[in-house]
Amino acid sequence: MPRHPREIHRTNRVGWLRAAVLGANDGIVSTASLIVGFAAAGSERHAILLAGVAGLVGGALSMAAGEFVSVSSQADAENADLAIERGELAQYPDGELRELTGIYVRRGLEPELARRVAEQLTAHDALGAHARDELGITHELRARPLQAAGASAAAFASGAAWPLLITALAPLATLASIVTAAWLLALAALGAKVARAGGAPTLRGATRVVAWSALAMAATAGIGRLFGV
């Protein structure tokens, strides 16, 4: 028989991938929108760069803080549930064993087999078994606040650096057009890369990111042109 290939799953990427995608997308869109808005208002290059740098620093720190707080809340909820489960295992081990057996019966095991499985898993790691099968908490998907905050901040700064570099080098007269074109390419590449990392079609990922992000830049450019007096 042919050798079974090693399976590569993507669920272990969920925690950092979501934060990285959100950070990079926001970094590109918000910074490029600021630059296009200031350029549409007729600002000088130093003012545009200053706005972009301020947006990069403030946005990266804001993304990190937001991710840390939100993911910490998730971690607190998980830890609270685990503490409750740990106490119930200490006080009511027989009841918890019956509860675990019932879970496996509902998943399709025969009652006798479900009981044996529950006993073996309880003997091996009772809290881990209940965390996984009762609460849906796994090691791969556990909330990791520092990881999410770091990934989000780094991704935001990386995304924001792209339009800032173009702003420093591109001719001022055509700055808005060049930044917009580069922004579209960067977002399309980001969407395709993220889709590939998540196992989705690359074209759909690129289109989804570009289409929604275009609204932000169009609105900001319109405001800059309207009020740039």
Rank of each mutant, 00 (worst) to 15 (best):
A77G: 12
A77L: 14
A77E: 09
A77T: 15
E78M: 07
N79V: 02
A80W: 10
A80L: 12
L82R: 08
L82G: 05
A83G: 05
I84V: 10
I84G: 02
R86A: 00
G87L: 01
E88R: 13
L89D: 03
A90I: 06
A90D: 11
A90M: 05
A90C: 07
Q91P: 08
Y92S: 14
P93E: 00
P93V: 01
P93W: 00
P93C: 01
D94P: 02
G95F: 01
G95S: 03
E96N: 01
L97S: 04
L97E: 07
R98Y: 13
R98T: 13
R98L: 14
R98M: 15
L100A: 02
L100M: 02
L100P: 01
L100D: 00
L100Q: 00
T101E: 15
G102Y: 06
G102K: 05
G102F: 11
I103M: 03
I103C: 05
Y104C: 15
V105P: 08
V105D: 04
V105I: 15
R106P: 12
R106C: 11
R107P: 14
R107W: 10
G108A: 06
L109E: 12
L109Y: 11
L109Q: 10
E110R: 15
E110P: 10
P111T: 07
P111R: 15
E112C: 07
